[in-house]
Design a protein around this nucleic acid. Structure first.
Lengths: 345, 345
DNA sequence: TGAGGTGCTGCATACGTATTCACTTTATAT
DNA sequence: ATATAAAGTGAATACGTATGCAGCACCTCA
C-alpha cells in the first residue's frame, strides 16, 4: 500500500503500539499478548512490512545464512549434492550464500567475502582449506564443515564417503570375479578423493598378491575417461577390468570400449564407476558403481553444522559414511551369488 | 591476532585515527590521504579486520547481493546456467543468495525471504512470477529478471532463448529432409518453454500443410522421454522423426528406440533435442539439437540487472536471444548441403 | 487490605558502518 | 606575502532492529 521501505516504526504507528511490540510480534519466545500480536500482524499486512534481516543480524549476531562453497560443478555428482544441501538448509530455515570456485581458484580467496556477510557457518564441498583459514574462522566463532574432503588435525567438521573402503571392496569384487589384469582411471591428480580411491584399490590388489594394476588419468571428465580407456588398451598388456574414480569417466570409458574398440562389456571388459550419478542408470549404460549415501551425508553435515552454531564449544567431528555397491550390467560377477557390499572398515 | 569481532573502531584506535577514516580507507572514491590509508590498512591487517557487510548494507542501502531463484535443477541444462550466472556475478563483485524451488513450490513463497535480506535484485530462472509479486518488488525498487520465462506486461526484464523460432526451424529441417510423420515429445505441460516449443513446431508443420504430428509427454526427464518414445511407436501410425522439448528426453528416446525397439537412428528415425547439454555430445549419442547461447543470455541478464540497479528508472527489457542448430548424427538431413540455422524471426 | 507475583508494554540503547557537516591543514594563485 | 580553493579529518548522526530495564495493570494469596 505504501511506497518505499516500511519499517517497524511505521507498523508501530499504524497499530498504535511501540516499535518494541512490533519486534516482539515477529519473534517467537517473546512476551506479548495475543491481542497486540494480532493488531501488529494486521498493520504489518496492511503496510506490506517485512523485517530487515540486515538490521536483525547486526543486533542479534545471527544471520541465518550459511556460506556454501562449491568447486567443480561440472561433475554431475555435485548438482545433486547442491540440491540436497539447499533443500536441507531451506527446510530448517536457513538461507544459503553460494560461491563457486574455479579449478585455479583458492577457497581462501572467497572465504573472507563470505565472512564479511556474517554467515553463521561455512560448508565447503570438494575443496580443501588451509589451516590458517580454519583458524581465522575459529576466531570468528564460525563453524566450518568440509564435505567430501578432510584435513588432519584441524578444527572443522568433515564428512566423507568411504573412498578407501569402497575402492577396496571394488578390488575384491573384480578379483573374485576372476579378472586378472585390473586398471584404474584416476580423476584430478591432486584431489584427495582420487588419491584415496586409488590407494584403496591398489593396496587391496597388492594385499591379495594380484598383478599390479594399470593406470591412466581422466581428470574426472567424460572425454578424459574416453581417452584414458583408449590409452589403456593401446599398451602392451590390456586390462580386463577398469575401475574409474568417477562415473563420468566410466561412461566415457564405456563409449570408447564399445563404440571405438568394439569390445563387449562386460564379457571382455568390466567397468565400474563411482558416484552413481543419474546417467549411470540410463538404459544404454547400466553402470555398476559405488553409491555414496548423499542424502544422509548432507543431512548429517547440515545437522552438525546447526548443532555447532548453537553450541560453538562442541569439538569438531570427522565422519566417514559408508555407501554401497550398486550392481548393474557393466561388471562380471563372482560365481557365488554376490550381495551388494557395504564395507564399513 | 585478537579474538572475537574486530570493528572499525578497534582499527581506528590501533591506527590512531577516527572511525570515519577507517571507513574511508575501505571505500574508494572517498577523500583520504595516502598516508592515513596506509596506516589504516596496516592496522586492519594486523587486527584481521573485515568490514561488516550487514552494517554497511544497513546504511548504504546496497547489499551487493543478488537473489537467484532456480527451479528444476534436475535438468542438466540448469547446472550450467547456474555456473555461468555465478561466475558472472562473482566477477562483477556481487554475492549470490540462492534459492531452489521444488516443482510444487511457488516462487512467491521464497521471494519475501529474499527481500528480507535486502538483495539488490532478483533473478528467476525457469519459473514465473505473479504480477502482484512483481509489483511488490517494484515498490521496493528491487529489479527483477526472468530467465527463460516471460510474462506479458509486467515491469521485469526477461531474456529467453528463441523457443518458437527454434522449433519452427527444426520443423523445417525435418520436413526438408523428407520425413513424413513427425512427432513431438513435450516437457512439463504447464511450462511456457514446453508450450512455446510445441507451438512453434506444430504451427510450422501446419503452415507447410504436412501431416499433423504425433505427440507424447515426457516431463522433461530421461525416463519420461524413454517411455514417451515407446508410446509413440506403440500407436497405429509410427513417426519417422521426433523432436523432443529437451535433450534429456531425447537421450531417453534414443535409448528406447535403439535398445528396445531395435531401430536405427537416423536411418529409420530421426531425433532432435533442445538445450545442447554436455551429454548430447557424448560419443554414444551425438545428438542433433538446438543450442541456446547460454553464456550470452546470462551475461546480458547480468548486465541488464546491474544496469537497472544503478538506474532504477530504466524501463524493463524483454529480449529474445537466438541460438543455433547443432548438426550431429541423430537426424537425417536434406539433400542440399545444410547450414546450421540461426533463425532470428 | 496489602505484599508479592505475573504478564505486557514502552523507553532507551546497542549493533557496526557510511556520510554530512564543520573544521583544520595544505596547496595554489595572485 | 596573503587570499582562496582544495583536500583531509573527526564528531555526530542515521540505518532498522532486538533487548535489558523499569513501570504498569492485573491477579493471587494470606
Amino acid at each position: 500500500m505504501t511506497r518505499g521501505r516500511v519499517t517497524s516504526f511505521d507498523v508501530a504507528k499504524e497499530a498504535g503500539v511501540s516499535q518494541s511490540a512490533v519486534s516482539r510480534a515477529f519473534n517467537s519466545g517473546t512476551s506479548i499478548s495475543e491481542k497486540t500480536r494480532l493488531r501488529v500482524e494486521a498493520a504489518a499486512e496492511k503496510l506490506g512490512y517485512r523485517p530487515n534481516a540486515m538490521a536483525r543480524t547486526l543486533i542479534s549476531r545471527r544471520s541465518n545464512m550459511i556460506g556454501l562453497v562449491m568447486a567443480d560443478i561440472v561433475n554431475p555428482f555435485y548438482p545433486a549434492v547442491l540440491d540436497t544441501f539447499m533443500r536441507s538448509f531451506q527446510q530448517l530455515g536457513h538461507r544459503v550464500m553460494l560461491f563457486m570456485v574455479a579449478r585455479d581458484q583458492q577457497v581462501s580467496d572467497v572465504l573472507p567475502q563470505l565472512l564479511e556477510y556474517q554467515v553463521d557457518g561455512v560448508v565447503i564441498t570438494s575443496a580443501t582449506l588451509s589451516p590458517e583459514m580454519v583458524e581465522h574462522c575459529q576466531r570468528l566463532q564460525t563453524p566450518v564443515t568440509l564435505f567430501n574432503r578432510y584435513v588432519e588435525g584441524i578444527q572443522a567438521d568433515s564428512i566423507c564417503c568411504d573412498n578407501i573402503g569402497a575402492s577396496r571392496a571394488i578390488a575384491d569384487l573384480l578379483l573374485d570375479a576372476g579378472h586378472r589384469q585390473l586398471a584404474f582411471i584416476a580423476g584430478v591428480r591432486n584431489t584427495s578423493t582420487s588419491q584415496d580411491r586409488e590407494q584403496g584399490f591398489f593396496s587391496r590388489i597388492h594385499e591379495r598378491r594380484a598383478t599390479a594394476p594399470l593406470k591412466a588419468e581422466g581428470h574426472y571428465q567424460y572425454q578424459g575417461g574416453y581417452e584414458a580407456a583408449l590409452a589403456l588398451f593401446a599398451g602392451e598388456t590390456k586390462p580386463d577390468a577398469i575401475f574409474c574414480a568417477n562415473d563420468l569417466m566410466a561412461l566415457g570409458a564405456i563409449d570408447a570400449i564399445r563404440n571405438q574398440l568394439k569390445l563387449n562389456i562386460p564379457e571382455q571388459v568390466s567397468v565400474i564407476g563411482f558416484d552413481d550419478i543419474k546417467e549411470a542408470s540410463w538404459k544404454n549404460y547400466q553402470l555398476t558403481t559405488y553409491r555414496p549415501r548423499v542424502e544422509k551425508m548432507v543431512n548429517t553435515a547440515v545437522e552438525n553444522m546447526l548443532e555447532r552454531i548453537s553450541n560453538p564449544e562442541r569439538p569438531a567431528l570427522q565422519l566417514i559414511e559408508a555407501g554401497e555397491i550398486v550392481i548393474r550390467q557393466t561388471a562380471r560377477l563372482p560365481e557365488t551369488i554376490y550381495q551388494p557390499i557395504v564395507d564399513e572398515r
